[in-house]
Design a protein around this nucleic acid. Structure first.
Length: 917
RNA sequence: GGGCUCGUAGCUCAGGUGGUCAGAGCGCACGCCUGAUAAGCGUGAGGUCGGAAGUUCGAGUCUUCCCGGGCCCA
């Protein structure tokens, strides 16, 4: 027989599982098959009676393509649901979208431009809806392409009438509890457009404003004044307080016959700007003045000294004019000190009658008049002008103002709501654990929740206003009536239908007893929308509640987690989730934030279209997502390399099982020692990886799996096995023993990888002899089989592997000196360094040549001349004696002695004769 | 400025309660094989564990401060 003919007698690997993945083309085909086979539906069907594991989806906002952050978020969720499904749970996944709110309304009105003014609210709402649904569809396709398994045909969408009904239902509960109240709060207001503006609708431009220093006389000490500085004289009528920093040093200076109070750090600047000459007479901390009263310079009332951390020493006097009706910080301070919120200004920016003599004046015109008055009564120290950045309206470009307007609030403390929420937080398991501290601190400090918006794209707050006295009434019965109509017609009904349809019988004004009303047109904060999802999607449908898991970015400690836990605690008394996992944010390779201006934005679909979804998913698994994670070309390409390794390992397993089925499995007792070792190691690997999955530690799954495939399988076990798999008789015990273990390894590996790289796992599963279902995603998680673990054997092999390291080093030296090429060229002489090792090697003497992949091994206790000193053994490498067997490439002294097969070693001759089983 | 948080080899990550803990895989360099072949195997070079001080017989591991990044507020 020639060399080539001997090759024909080997059992070389064979498989349809291609080395080249071609994921970009293959993944869509697999997706299509999953859809046709209804795999998602079947996972639920097959587990209909099993316990439920419920991950409730946080709805992304439907106003653009998905970005890498949302992609990662969904992939992580998919890891969870796929894993839990394989663990035997019924684990439904209902994706959702957040569809109301300003960003969409803003985009739509921007696109409309001037035309927006001619549109009715309902027309604008229709456009918003179309806009949102368009992106729901786009995002849905993108998420599906990532391999996210879920009920994509029946997602929850916050603009669905049924969903809107539940928002109103939860809201009604809050109203009934008495936690909803009406109060005043400053918002950006454009007097020209006569509308409230959101932060996002503000543009900053340079603007010239007056700059005035004003002194406030102290009540207790009429010779002493506190000096303030402001660029908005028109807000002086609304002044109720002066804010000082508690820890700054303030000085009392003597100016003429008077004493003025100014922060020490601003004295020079103050003096330079006002030209005032002074003499310091006293110093004290800001905190010492807390509660002192001053006289208002224009009205017969007082302003109180308060303390605030935001006071700086950049401009002014360190004594900040405070008008809670005209500034956000002022408002917050006002809440703390229970100050009145004055805002004597109307929609058009004109003073109302509360402003006294200024009534009817436009605020911009009033500046002059007020400055003049301050000058006349001696309160004005200095008048000047200043150029600074000032907020302007995005639409009319005019300057805007802060103006207190009536808003709806949810009281955080009424009915002990805050306390109950804090209690509930403790019952939740937070991953990572610091999430609990974070949300606890936030809940402890948060102010009441402003829930009204002066916008059209949202769920209307069905409050009515009395036609007679103007009292605004929020009545649970109106909400209920409206909610029931919404269920049929959607929230457009509020804009389209007559108020009478929403009024319960006998509704009268609580103030004047009137019975005629008009609608009001505020809408609800969208955090209420999404914060009700547990009710709309889970609780009201009789699904498992509280759900097992919420999984979102850590910004949601303030956002969705909080709105959800507040609303759920209010209505049901408990948190809506048992556990919360948070992830960090995605940065570029330098750790910088991704932004269009930096040009470092990575598009997830670009990765999918270039490398495949499994590569993107493998990258997600490789990261420590609890913290911020980095991404870029290099990092992704690293995953391509790792993917190749995993794929080739699976491919090699498959290719050596082409002639193997379940019925060929050998019982454990019949396995060869090396195979028992590998099987035991597999159990350890399964056990470890399973615990990682339980704790959402995917990077550890990833690392353990890569290491397992590279070192234990590829470099050791599979390399050693080549001889037996190829050379021994097809159905011999030597080969079947190896194949039995390969079968178990393949089966486990494919399943363990299935949640992470579902496409590749599916492709491999279809070729696997262990296939039992039509899809790997209907499969069950591999069990750890204790009977496959022989701890003593594992321990012994652990030591043999250390000896192997010594042998490999010696072989490498022999290679360098051209003594050998392939390790099979070698005959290795080993001198153990201690008795223990000697005994161990003796025990396994018969398989050492196989284990080291050499032709022969000789154990000796003699001193080996020229040996390489290792850690546990000394090793001498010689070229092997005899001829190289043309079949198995091993050297053997007796090669060539078989008459029929003269070029083969005794073992191969026996195999060829059919004598070796 | 405040609350929380992160900073270990070029990259991605491991390193309970302080004492062989300075590691793994990838990448890289060099070599082997050509019966996993656009594969496989081996050997090797890479880190003062962000910086400084402190507690301790001993600190990536505890404390304080500083530098840099992040989320949320202000």
């Amino acid at each position: 027989m020639s060399k080539l003919d001997y090759k024909e007698t080997l059992n070389l690997p064979r498989t349809n599982f291609q080395m080249k993945a071609n994921l970009v083309n293959k993944e869509p085909e697999i997706l299509k098959r999953w859809e046709e086979q209804k795999i998602y539906e079947k996972t639920l069907e097959y587990r209909a009676d099993a316990p439920t594991y419920l991950l409730h989806d946080g709805p992304p906002y439907a106003n653009g393509d998905i970005h890498l952050g949302t992609a990662m978020n969904k992939v992580l969720k998919d890891f969870v649901t796929r894993y839990k499904t394989m663990r035997g749970y019924r684990a439904p996944y209902v994706p959702g979208w957040d569809t109301h709110g300003l960003p969409i309304e803003h985009r739509v009105t921007t696109m409309l431009g001037d035309e927006a003014k001619n549109k009715t609210p309902v027309e604008i709402r229709r456009l918003c809806k179309d806009f949102a649904l368009k992106f729901v569809n786009i995002q849905r396709e993108q998420f599906k392409r990532l391999g996210i398994k879920g009920d994509w045909e029946n997602p929850y969408i916050t603009l669905d009438p049924e969903y809107e009904y539940h928002i109103l239902d939860v809201f009604k509960t809050l109203v009934e509890m008495g936690n909803v109240y009406r109060g005043n709060k400053p918002v950006y207001w454009c007097p020209n457009c006569r509308t409230a503006l959101a932060e996002a609708e503000i543009e900053y431009h340079d603007h010239e404003s007056p700059s005035i220093y004003v002194k406030f006389q102290m009540v207790e000490d009429p010779k002493t004044y506190i000096v303030i500085w402001t660029t908005t004289p028109w807000t002086i009528p609304a002044n109720v307080a002066i804010a000082l920093h508690p820890e700054y040093t303030y000085t009392k200076i003597k100016v003429g016959e008077e004493y003025w109070i100014v922060a020490e750090g601003l004295l020079q600047k103050f003096s330079a700007e006002t030209g005032v000459h002074f003499e310091v007479v006293e110093k004290f901390l800001g905190s010492e003045l807390e509660g002192k009263l001053t006289k208002h310079p224009l009205y017969d009332r007082t302003s109180i000294v308060v303390l605030a951390d935001y006071v700086t020493l950049e401009d002014g006097t360190g004594c900040v004019h405070t008008a809670p009706g005209h500034g956000e910080e002022d408002y917050q301070t006002g809440l703390k000190y229970n100050l009145p919120v004055l805002s004597p200004v109307d929609d058009e920016g004109k003073f109302t009658k509360e402003a006294g003599k200024y009534e009817g004046l436009k605020i911009w015109d009033a500046n002059k008049v007020i400055v003049e008055d301050l000058k006349n009564n001696g309160a004005l120290i200095k008048y000047g002008k200043v150029q600074h950045s000032y907020p302007h309206c995005w639409r009319c470009k005019g300057p805007v103002m802060f103006r207190a307007t009536p808003q709806w609030f949810i009281s955080v403390d009424k009915n002990d709501l805050r306390k109950k929420v804090l209690e509930q937080i403790k019952n939740v398991k937070w991953y990572p654990a610091w999430g609990e501290n974070r949300i606890t601190a936030m809940v402890q400090e948060r102010p009441d929740w402003t829930i009204s918006r002066q916008r059209v794209w949202g769920v209307p707050i069905p409050a009515v206003i009395c036609r007679h006295c103007g009292e605004v009434i929020l009545d649970a019965r109106v909400i209920e009536k409206f909610a029931n109509i919404v269920r049929e017609k959607g929230t457009d009904a509020w804009f389209e239908m007559d108020v009478e349809h929403f009024l319960p019988e006998g509704l009268t004004c609580s103030k004047c007893g009137g019975n005629e009303f008009d609608k009001t047109y505020d809408t609800l904060d969208v955090w209420i929308d999404s914060g009700c999802s547990w009710e709309a999607v889970v609780h009201s449908k009789g699904e498992k509640f509280p759900v097992d898991l919420y999984l979102e970015g850590d910004d949601q400690h303030r956002g969705w987690f909080q709105s959800s836990i507040f609303l759920s605690t209010a209505k049901t008394g408990v948190a809506p989730f048992k556990a919360v996992v948070t992830h960090g944010f995605i940065k570029d390779e330098q750790g910088r934030k991704m932004s269009k201006s930096l040009g470092n934005v990575v598009d997830p679909m670009e990765i999918v279209n270039k490398y495949g979804a499994d590569i993107l998913r493998l990258w997600v698994a490789s990261t420590d997502f609890f913290d911020n994670i980095r991404v870029g070309k290099n990092i992704i390409e690293q995953q391509v390399e790792v993917y190749r390794k995993l794929r080739n390992t699976i491919r090699y397993l498959l290719s050596n099982l082409y002639d193997f089925t379940e019925s060929d499995l050998l019982p454990y007792e019949k396995l060869l020692p090396l195979d028992k070792w590998a099987l035991g190691r597999l159990q350890k690997y399964i056990e470890q990886v399973t615990s990682y999955y339980e704790e959402f530690e995917y990077s550890k799954v990833y690392n353990a799996t890569v290491k397992y495939c590279t070192t234990e399988l590829s470099a050791i076990y599979l390399d050693i096995l080549k001889d037996r798999l190829y050379v021994e008789a097809k159905d011999s015990i030597y080969r079947r023993s190896a194949q039995t273990v390969l079968y178990y390894i393949l089966d486990a590996l494919v399943k363990i990888l299935a949640p992470i790289i579902p496409f590749t796992a599916e492709e491999a599963y279809q070729e696997s002899p262990a296939k039992r279902f039509e899809s790997v995603h209907l499969e069950y998680w591999p069990e750890v089989r204790k009977e496959f673990v022989d701890d003593q054997l594992l321990e012994e092999f652990q030591h043999l592997l250390l000896v192997r390291d010594d042998v490999l080093k010696a072989l490498e030296e022999a290679r360098t000196s051209d003594l050998i090429g392939h390790s099979l060229d070698a005959h290795v002489y080993i001198e153990p360094k201690n008795e223990e090792i000697a005994a161990l090697l003796k025990k396994y003497e018969g398989i050492l040549d196989e284990f080291f992949i050499v032709s022969a091994v000789t154990l000796t206790d003699e001193n080996l001349e020229g040996a390489v000193t290792g850690q546990f053994v000394d090793v001498l490498v010689k070229h092997a004696d005899g001829e190289k067997c043309q079949r198995c490439w091993k050297y053997h002294p007796d090669t060539g002695k078989d008459e029929k097969h003269p070029e083969t070693c005794p073992r191969c001759s026996a195999v060829l004769r059919g004598e070796r089983k």
